[in-house]
Design a protein around this nucleic acid. Sequence first.
DNA 1: ACAAATACATAGATTTACAATGTATTAAAT
DNA 2: ATTTAATACATTGTAAATCTATGTATTTGT
Lengths: 117, 117
Amino acid sequence: MKPNPSKELLKGTLTTIILRLLSEKGKMYGYELAQCVKETTDGKVLIKEGSLYPALHKLEANGLIECEKVMIGKRVRKYYHLTPAGETATAKAINELLDFLNTIHHLITTEPIYGNT
Amino acid sequence: MKPNPSKELLKGTLTTIILRLLSEKGKMYGYELAQCVKETTDGKVLIKEGSLYPALHKLEANGLIECEKVMIGKRVRKYYHLTPAGETATAKAINELLDFLNTIHHLITTEPIYGNT
DNA sequence: ACAAATACATAGATTTACAATGTATTAAAT
DNA sequence: ATTTAATACATTGTAAATCTATGTATTTGT
């Protein structure tokens, strides 16, 4: 019924996570990205194919990542890496996300100032 | 073009924010909630009517909040407050959101462990 | 008198991610 | 040898969340 509790909360962060991991590891392929997120979050965040591949294709279409096809036996593996524009976008996206996390954290843990201005 | 930078990232948090503020202040009306969030986040998070009112109606339909109509002159003002079920849900929602914020923070700031397990 | 703020609300569009499904190769288990 | 699970790519259709735009009406400030 509720296998992925963070499902609804995850919205909007997927692209930033992908960019961040590519920035960290240099190059990764789709399946590897999903496994990496799964392991890093101890199974708490699961990126599904239906989210991952469209996200990668969109990032590629926007010129933020590029892919390099490598044959592993008879199987194609697509390694993605950041473009220069992607590196700039990554730094910006991470800063925005961290700022957002702080803002939300503040909003749900601190006494609101409204009412005594 | 980009008046609300947190727009896409905000998804999934609105309900929790509303519950949290009602828990904090006891009772609030819609417009007050929006103003409170705006002031608390220094304008970085803006809740629009098109998000706010459907969210409030949904919370009410789910039995987590109740409203009390108060006439201010000729104008109706709807004060919302948590039900007992709402108080339980609030605690849970805040914990889940904080856990999620930590998970995402960890994901975008820490060296991934994947690769050396 | 007029503009801005207050205060409610809905309809339609967009975005995001997921579930379900599909194809194919490779490794492991029986 | 055959089956199963894991690897690895992908698409289609669906559901949910939020926004934009719009609407109504009252109150306050100038």
